[in-house]
Design a protein around this nucleic acid. Structure first.
Lengths: 234, 234
DNA sequence: TAGTGGTCTAGACCACAAA
DNA sequence: TTGTGGTCTAGACCACTAT
């Protein structure tokens, strides 16, 4: 069994409350025995869970399950959009516009492409339970993605890249900061101009190093907190 | 050689420009040979560098060195304060106040301790090149830390916990979001009330599960961006 | 002292990128 | 096809927690 697969099993067990009595995972040895996997598999699977913030481990003591955060907290490590974090909520994507732009000097620099390259520019709003959560402005390289229309833009294009085009995603570069909302974005979010925004910039590269997606997402600061956790070393 | 130690060597090599010709690390096999380490050591060391955002790897192709970010970008994964990110800058810590509080219901809940427990409350400003970068409000469990005065509070207390008290740090829980500045914090940062703030909340636990440090840091939104990166899986 | 997670060894084979 | 990183095996010993 691949370790990613095993991490999914453990994740499901946790969600199903299988370990509620102790709030701990079984020991590594007993996982090895129960599931007939090797220690390599166990430890890699658990590293995934640690990165996801599901568990933490203490040498000599065990692997502890962390309490789940409520709605409004998003995992900073997730690169595949919010949909997974919002299970049980009604999530709607409203495509405001899909345009084709010709890269000028600025945009070419931003998208790390030649001047004159065609670039898609898409503006979307994410509603959760009918209320706006975020505004996304995304550039896609037309060379990579081919054709986009308003219907395609409603879904995430990541799956399409992989299955449809057979391309592999590589690195996702993330920058986050706070900024003041401009009037247009504020209106989309039903906030006021000058209010704070939590901004997430994402640059996604293919495994061959080509940047194919650069996005800037403005979140409603009243509705979103992001979390992560780390073992403290040293 | 321990893999952490090896990661420090590689980090130094990168900083010294040793791989500038190719912008890649040597292959795993050649690192094994050059340094007389095992593949286990190499791969673990490189995982550290990947988490730090120093390199990324592409299966079949190699391990690539990422371009360094300039000043004003902070690594979200770092749990040990800003000092390391600000080498070359003049960093001053100004301790505004050190108080002892008796935990009421709210504070006891925040610090996960009993009502009536003594808690230190410290307010500090971090200046970089004489200009305020952040305001930190930190609670320390007096049960854990013992005695703090204004001089001690100027330094980071993490080293003291480890070396002085022989305690091991465990988990650091981080929550980030945007918020509006209150008047007092705005004044410290030389910004206006209601301006955005990038807020980082950190809860640091000992390895025995005791929360000993809960902090809330308000960053000047004009001066700080935070970064992280991930390989995109699946 | 017993039990648990962390580090390490010395291999083998698989999957992908680039020529 | 070659070279590269990713996955995997089957162990051994170390370091820490808790009793």
């Amino acid at each position: 069994m691949k370790y990613y697969e095993f991490s999914e099993i453990l994740k499901k067990n946790i969600l199903d409350g299988k370990y509620l009595d102790t709030n701990k995972l079984p020991t590594e040895d007993s996982l090895i025995e129960q599931y007939g996997v090797t220690r390599y598999c166990v430890r890699n699977a658990i590293n995934i869970l640690i990165e996801l913030g599901e568990v933490y481990s203490v040498q000599g003591s065990g692997m502890f399950i962390r309490k789940k955060r409520g709605y409004g907290y998003f995992n900073l490590s997730h690169t595949k959009g919010l949909t997974k974090e919002l299970e049980g909520k009604q999530v709607d994507t409203i495509v405001i516009s899909v345009e084709t732009k010709i890269a000028d000097e600025n945009l070419a620099s931003r998208m790390q492409c030649d001047i004159g390259t065609e670039i898609y520019y898409i503006v979307r709003i994410r509603n959760v339970d009918k209320e706006p959560l975020s505004v996304e402005r995304t550039y896609y390289s037309k060379d990579v993605i081919g054709y986009i229309d308003k219907n395609i833009a409603t879904d995430s294009l990541f799956g399409y890249i992989k299955e449809g085009l057979g391309l592999n995603l590589g690195l996702a570069d993330k920058v986050v900061y706070a900024d003041k909302l401009d009037l247009e974005t504020a209106n989309y979010l039903k906030l006021d101009e000058g209010d704070p925004a939590f901004v997430v910039e994402d640059d996604v590269y293919l495994s061959n190093g080509v940047l194919f997606n650069a996005s800037k997402v403005y979140y409603n600061y009243k509705k979103t907190k992001f979390f992560g956790s780390k073992s403290v070393v040293g």
